[in-house]
Design a binder for these strands. Structure first.
Lengths: 155, 155
DNA sequence: TGACATTCCATGTTACAACACTTATCTTCC
DNA sequence: GGAAGATAAGTGTTGTAACATGGAATGTCA
């Protein structure tokens, strides 16, 4: 039998194992979704990574977060937090201020403009989510969530 | 109840829906896996994307493939195939030659050095695969594969 | 056969990712 | 209280991704 993924990437040979197919499935699906989310965000001038930062800072509220804390909360690791925040600050979506208590920390906070952008962007992203995942049963979704959690947990 | 993913990215609020959690799970898991694969490949001087190209060309055999065909088979879309192939050629892992029948096409083929590198690299990647996916039951793997296929198929 | 559209590859430019290293501030321990 | 170590940011550099554009070769159709 020929899997869907095999046809998608025009692979002639079947997968050697279910694990190999699952691994590629995850990478492929994420690439498809990420691409679609990036497209949806493009009109607003931000990338999925930047959107992720804004959501994190919105979640943090008035207290804000320092760079390291932002990095910990990111979906995908960002190895250059200072410049990423710098860019968002240049867009006036976040503000940065050195922590008076600990001069090593720079606290980042979302600005009203940042919140406003998030509010505009969210429905567009929900369109993507709904289109791609809306038809899946609760049971299927739970299966995916738990299966992937097991993968991330695995030693 | 607090999900694992929620704790992982230190998110205080629960997910608004299973679809939202599944979406983030996929992106997060792929980021973790991609990072680990990249680490495993680093000693060999290639990226996951380049490894993907080599595997594609190995699959194509002596006939080779033109740039567009390579692009179609990639896991994640690469918007700059010519230069990607150029780099692999500079590493002597592939060869390129203009198709005499159709001067627009440039046929890329894997070189013996490329095959050799693939052979060395494969066991290292299998270590990652085994560590992350080895403990999952066949049933769980199938669930992931089918669930993700449904997402990619949707719409 | 000559104009035109199409397909595929190449190139220029910009911005960002990745990595290594430096600087600044705080903590700890003598 | 001063020096060593730890922690967080910033910076410099390199390479690559992303986007737009251009150009060469082919196919099509009048």
């Amino acid at each position: 039998m020929t899997s869907l993924l095999q046809a998608e990437i025009k692979q002639s040979r079947p997968f050697p194992s279910a694990a190999a197919e699952a691994l590629l499935s995850i990478l492929r699906t994420a690439a498809v979704l990420d691409h679609e989310l990036a497209d949806a965000l493009k009109p607003f001038g931000i990338t999925p990574t930047q959107h992720n930062v804004l959501r994190i800072l919105r979640g943090a509220g008035q207290g804000g977060l320092c760079g390291r804390e932002v990095a910990e909360r990111m979906i995908a690791s960002v190895p250059d937090v200072p410049r990423m925040l710098e860019r968002l600050e240049a867009m006036h979506l976040i503000s940065r201020e050195r922590d008076p208590d600990d001069g090593r920390h720079v606290t980042a906070r979302i600005t009203p403009a940042g919140r406003q952008l998030l509010a505009k962007v969210t429905p567009e992203l929900e369109v993507v989510q709904e289109r791609r995942l809306g038809q899946l049963s609760k049971r299927t979704l739970t299966g995916i969530i738990e299966g992937l959690a097991a993968i991330r947990e695995a030693r």
